[in-house]
Nucleic acid binder design. Structure first.
Lengths: 207, 207
DNA sequence: CTATGTGAATTTATTCACAGCA
DNA sequence: TGCTGTGAATAAATTCACATAG
């Protein structure tokens, strides 16, 4: 199946596998079998093999997958190689937590700029990043920042999204609990924490 | 199809519909058609009708769906009626942001307790909630808290999960970037922000 | 005439089972 | 012998098209 289109569901799982492979690599393992990776991530081994089969032969029968080689290749598919600079808009409670979060690095992301509308925040530094006036969003293009993170109140989300798009951003991670309308060349992923929480009780035993 | 099992994918979408319906209700609308709801949320109208058809007749042909009635019913299916108390473990950057977040209320959630391990935080109040020693996690059962939110460093996540389960928690929202092993009567939903971000570049145009 | 509800058709994803390679 | 890679079988979800109800 080497030359097939990779299914969306597989793309969704690739970062999961990447996490597992990076973890295994940190432990010094050169190879990992689909079974071991499956145990680590609590998924099915045949699902893993099928997913990997969509983009080539990386495993050695009897041995497993070459960890480093596979990491490099998954990063390449997801276009994580080369790194990405992101602009954070909205340095409130959530925005501040995102600035402090150290988990973006492993996937090659860096929050390279932060913006807010509150005058008393502008000019301050948080976690090595200086907070700028939202007016300066237009400068993103020339600064090589192609990715935006929206952490502003719901009412401002659509407007900020439009400004990000005007500035040349083509990918948006949206933490506001609203649908955002953008040209279809721009990809938006919305994370709505309360909504994820909302489907938890359905799966919980009575009580 | 009234008596069928509701597909998991439908359950995943119900909170999305709920958001749209609540929004529409706030605007004072008594009814909404699948087409209008679809436009609001950027999904397909036939998907909405199919999803709703799994749990009964709520629409009136020529008119649409009764907003309030449908809201009540979706809440009932998701078991959001009656409300849920949650315990937050880990009041760091992310934990603090979660305490400050005001979006849980609409789905009937309340962060009723917060725990940390750092002595200087214990006893302090943040957003009306007093921070307690993690040692006191065992008291959750008798306090009627059945839901846990893990916002601690990765290395501590598994241990905290086990303590939550011992205390009687049956649902966990996990913000640590690791798989958590729990008895299968307990449902875990993991939100890994960096992992969601990681599939953004794949869908972005070259650059 | 408008908008629902749903069988049927289609597409997509998962699971299996095993041939074949190191 | 151990583990990959993949066709084939199964299952699930999406999309369509239209009969039917208000």
């Amino acid at each position: 199946m080497r030359y097939h289109k990779i299914p969306d569901e597989t793309i969704r799982r690739l970062p999961v596998y990447l996490r597992g492979l990076l973890f295994s690599s940190e432990k010094g393992r050169k190879n990992i079998s689909s079974l071991d990776l499956a145990k680590l991530l609590a998924v099915n081994p045949w699902q893993i093999r099928k997913d990997f089969s969509y983009f080539g032969d990386f495993g050695t029968p009897g041995v497993g997958y070459d960890t480093e080689k596979l990491i490099r290749h998954i990063k390449k598919i997801l276009r994580l190689d080369g790194g990405h600079k992101a602009a954070l808009v909205g340095v409130g409670n959530l925005g501040g937590a995102l600035l402090a979060y150290d988990g973006f690095g492993v996937f090659g992301f860096e929050i390279a700029a932060a913006f807010d509308i509150a005058p008393h925040k502008i000019g301050q530094k948080m976690h090595e990043v200086e907070i700028e006036d939202v007016e300066r969003l237009a400068t993103l293009g020339e600064r090589g920042i192609g990715l935006g993170i929206i952490a502003v109140p719901r009412a401002a989300a659509q407007e900020i999204a439009e400004e990000l798009v005007s500035a040349g951003v083509t990918g948006i991670l949206n933490f506001s609990p609203v649908h955002i309308d953008v040209p279809k060349k721009v990809k938006v992923i919305t994370i709505d924490i309360a909504m994820d929480l909302a489907r938890l009780p359905y799966y919980m035993p009575a009580g």
